[in-house]
Amino acid sequence: MSEEFPDAQDPEMLRQKLALETAPIAWRELERFHARGVVVQAAETLDLVEVGYQLTQDNKSQVEQWMQAGELGSVTDADARDWHASNREVWALVIAPWVLIQKDKPA
Rank of each mutant, 00 (worst) to 15 (best):
Q54M: 14
S86H: 08
A80D: 12
I95R: 03
Q9A: 12
A26S: 01
R36A: 11
I95L: 07
E50Q: 14
R15E: 12
E64D: 13
V38P: 00
V94M: 11
E50D: 12
V75S: 00
A19I: 06
L20T: 05
W27Y: 02
E3P: 01
R81L: 10
R28C: 01
L55Q: 11
A8G: 09
P11S: 14
A107Y: 04
R36Q: 14
V40S: 03
H84F: 13
T76P: 07
I95Y: 08
M67A: 15
G37Y: 12
G52N: 07
A42R: 07
M67L: 09
A80P: 05
K60D: 11
L30Y: 06
I101S: 00
A23Q: 10
E50N: 13
S86R: 14
K60A: 14
Q102P: 03
V49H: 04
I95C: 09
W98E: 12
P24Q: 13
W83L: 00
F33Q: 11
A35W: 08
A8Y: 11
V90G: 01
E31A: 11
V63M: 15
K60I: 13
W83T: 00
L30T: 02
V90D: 00
L14G: 01
L30R: 04
A35L: 13
Q41A: 13
D82M: 10
L93K: 02
V39R: 04
V51R: 03
T56D: 04
D82T: 15
A43N: 11
Q16P: 00
F5V: 07
L100R: 10
R15T: 07
L93H: 07
R15P: 09
L100Q: 06
G52E: 01
R81G: 01
A8M: 15
E89W: 05
G52R: 03
V75H: 00
L20C: 06
W91Q: 06
W27F: 02
L20R: 13
E64N: 15
Q68M: 07
A85D: 14
V90Q: 02
Q57P: 03
S61K: 08
R32C: 09
D58M: 14
V38G: 01
E71V: 04
D104P: 01
L46S: 10
K105E: 15
V63H: 08
L55E: 07
Q68W: 03
M13S: 15
D7V: 10
D77A: 15
N87E: 15
H84R: 08
D58R: 15
H84E: 05
W98A: 07
D47A: 08
L93Y: 10
G70R: 09
S74L: 05
A96Y: 13
